[in-house]
C-alpha cells in the first residue's frame, strides 16, 4: 500500500538526509519509526505527505507514484491521510471543534451527520467538554488529542504521527497510544515516529529504525497482533 523504493533525499547539493531508503507498509499495519534525533524521521513523513519529493527513488502511495501526481491529485491523496504533528499545529484563531471540523469542511458546509461525527470524535478523545475552547487554553495533552481528533475525523486510510507524545506526560502518552491502537483496529494504517523507549516497550509493534539515512526493520519478539 505504501512503498518507498531506494528513496534518497538531499537538501541542496551537499546534505544527504536519506540514502536509498526502501520499505513497505502493508494496508492496516502499525509501525513505529524510530532513530536518533536528526536521523530523518520528519523528512520521511514530509515525503509521505508530499511536502517534499524524493531526490532519487520512488514513493508509491495507494498505488500511485508521488512523482507523477499533479497538484490536484496530491490534494486528493492527502485527503486519504491523517497527519499529527509534534507541536499539534492547531489553528489558534479557531475553536477546538472548528479545528477538528476543518478536514470535513473541504467538501462544503458540514452536514448534520458530519457535525455529529466531529462531536463523537471529540468525545472519543475526551474533549467533549472543551468544544468551544481556544487552543491557547488547552494543556499539551489536550492539544495533542485535539490534533489527533482532527487527523482521524475524515477516517483516513493512512495516519502519520510525528512524535505525537513528545510534549505530554507518560500517562497522557499512553492514552494517546491507545487511541492510535484503536484506530488501527478499525483498519487504518498507522506510522508513528517516536524515540520514547517506554512507548516502544509498552506497544511492541514493528519498528523501522532509521540510522545514517538508512532504514532497518525490526520486529519485536512480542509483536502485537491486530484484532480487527
Amino acid at each position: 500500500m505504501i512503498q518507498l523504493d531506494n528513496v534518497t533525499l538531499e537538501y541542496g547539493k551537499s546534505t544527504r538526509v536519506l540514502n536509498n531508503v526502501s520499505f513497505q507498509l502493508e494496508s492496516g499495519s502499525f509501525h513505529f519509526l524510530t532513530g536518533p534525533s536528526g536521523a530523518g524521521k520528519t523528512s520521511i513523513f514530509k515525503l509521505m505527505y508530499m511536502d517534499l519529493l524524493p531526490s532519487e527513488g520512488n514513493i508509491t502511495l495507494f498505488g500511485r507514484n508521488t512523482k507523477t501526481l499533479d497538484r490536484d491529485e496530491i490534494s486528493m491523496m492527502r485527503r486519504k491521510m491523517g497527519l499529527v504533528f509534534q507541536d499539534s499545529n492547531l489553528l489558534p484563531h479557531l475553536s477546538v471543534r472548528e479545528n477538528v471540523a476543518l478536514p470535513l469542511s473541504l467538501h462544503g458546509p458540514l452536514k448534520d451527520e458530519q457535525t455529529k461525527c466531529v462531536n463523537e470524535i471529540l468525545d472519543w478523545v475526551g474533549l467533549s467538554h472543551r468544544l468551544n475552547a481556544c487552543p491557547s487554553t488547552l494543556s499539551g495533552g489536550e492539544k495533542q488529542r485535539a490534533a489527533i481528533a482532527r487527523a482521524v475525523v475524515s477516517r483516513p486510510r493512512f495516519l502519520i504521527a510525528d512524535e505525537p507524545t513528545g510534549n505530554v506526560d507518560d500517562e497522557m502518552a499512553r492514552r494517546i497510544m491507545y487511541l492510535f491502537a484503536e484506530l488501527n483496529k478499525h483498519g487504518t494504517t498507522v506510522l508513528i515516529a517516536t524515540h520514547d523507549a517506554s512507548i516502544l516497550k509498552a506497544f511492541p509493534y514493528p519498528r523501522l529504525y532509521l540510522r545514517g539515512g538508512n532504514v532497518i526493520k525490526k520486529v519485536p519478539e512480542q509483536t502485537v497482533k491486530r484484532t480487527a
Binding site: 492527502r78 485527503r79 499545529n89 489553528l91 476543518l102 473541504l106
Partner: peptide, 16 residues
C-alpha cells in the same frame, strides 16, 4: 501562511 499550509496538508486543492 500557517493556516494555508495546514489546509493544504488536509487536502485543500488550489481551486478551493
Amino acid at each position: 501562511s500557517k493556516s494555508l499550509k495546514m489546509l493544504q496538508y488536509m487536502g485543500a486543492s488550489d481551486s478551493f
